[in-house]
């Protein structure tokens, strides 16, 4: 059986192979299922888009052009009230900083209650974990809305929203870092006769600190972004300025503000990376 060419495969050859290896020719049931899934998914997408009135896009073009044009033609630049813009940005940065800092400190404390090795008492640990899940699960924007209801419009609501939401996430991250530490170092400290607080301070903390700093810096950067959004729902900062100018159809100003915010975020991103490199680099000897 040295049919060395494809051309040499005649119909009897195919038939004999088919008899010996039937599944080699693809089961029609398998193919049917595959086709059904594809048809189902594509059908669903088309159906839902139709339900969502996808043809609205056809009417959109002129409004979009107006928007884009307005964003790029900057006029009456003296009337733009720059002071408000830059105060707003400063406010946003302050919100992000305060919120993240408070959250890191709280999370460092709570983290120990959520880690298996520092909280061997199961029920309390699980309770803390569930509560953290709730804090994390509820989107930051929703917390923002909640706090705006509770304490009114303004940056306080934003700080609280960032604080609550970041505490949830950071606690989980720290507790995982605590669970991943090297036991032996802790044992070493404990063997010197140090009490529990000192064990934490000298055994756990040095190992957890790099993660702590690294994650907090990362979160500060992402908090700046979220602080901007929180402003959109009234929780203070530059977001409120953006939305008020957007609603007033002052798109060129919106574009200007967004540009400034992007520059800020970029700078913070760069700074935070430099700090992390410097710090993590130093400790990795």
């Amino acid at each position: 059986m040295t049919a060395a060419t494809l051309a040499g495969i005649g119909p009897d050859e195919i038939a004999s192979v088919r008899r010996m290896h039937p599944q080699a020719f693809g089961s029609w049931r398998g193919k049917l299922v595959q086709w059904a899934v594809w048809v189902g998914v594509i059908g669903y997408v088309i159906g839902s888009l139709w339900y969502f009135d996808v043809w609205k896009f056809a009417y959109a073009s002129d409004r979009v052009w107006r928007l884009i044009a307005a964003m790029f033609t900057w006029k009456d630049m003296e009337t733009w009230r720059y002071a408000d813009i830059y105060t707003g940005i400063a406010q946003t940065l302050a919100m992000a900083f305060l919120g993240t800092m408070l959250a890191s400190l709280a999370a460092l404390f709570i983290g120990f209650f959520a880690a298996r090795n520092t909280m061997p008492f199961g029920p309390l640990r699980h309770l803390v974990r569930r509560m953290l899940d709730v804090l994390r699960g509820v989107d930051q924007l929703i917390w923002g809305l909640v706090f705006v209801r509770a304490v009114g419009l303004g940056p306080l609501a934003g700080v609280l929203a960032i604080f609550v939401s970041d505490t949830g996430t950071l606690s989980k991250l720290y507790s995982e870092a605590i669970e991943n530490i090297d036991r032996k170092q802790v044992e070493g400290v404990r063997a010197t006769g140090a009490g529990p607080i000192k064990v934490v301070r000298y055994g756990y903390l040095p190992q957890v600190l790099p993660v702590f700093i690294s994650q907090s810096l990362y979160f500060f950067e992402s908090s700046t972004r979220s602080a901007t959004i929180l402003g959109l729902v009234g929780a203070g900062g530059i977001g409120m300025i953006i939305i008020e100018r957007f609603r007033a159809n002052l798109f060129d100003q919106v574009a200007f503000v967004v540009l400034n915010v992007l520059v800020c975020i970029f700078v913070i991103d760069w700074l935070s990376r430099k700090i992390r490199e410097r710090f993590i680099g130093e400790t990795s000897h």
Partner: peptide
């Protein structure tokens, strides 16, 4: 760009409704 910002712009472009969100 966060989704809500895209949503804002899209609502302006194609009107209120779930399509902008999607």
């Amino acid at each position: 760009v966060p989704e809500i910002l895209y949503a804002l712009v899209l609502v302006f472009a194609i009107g209120i409704g779930p399509l902008a969100g999607v």
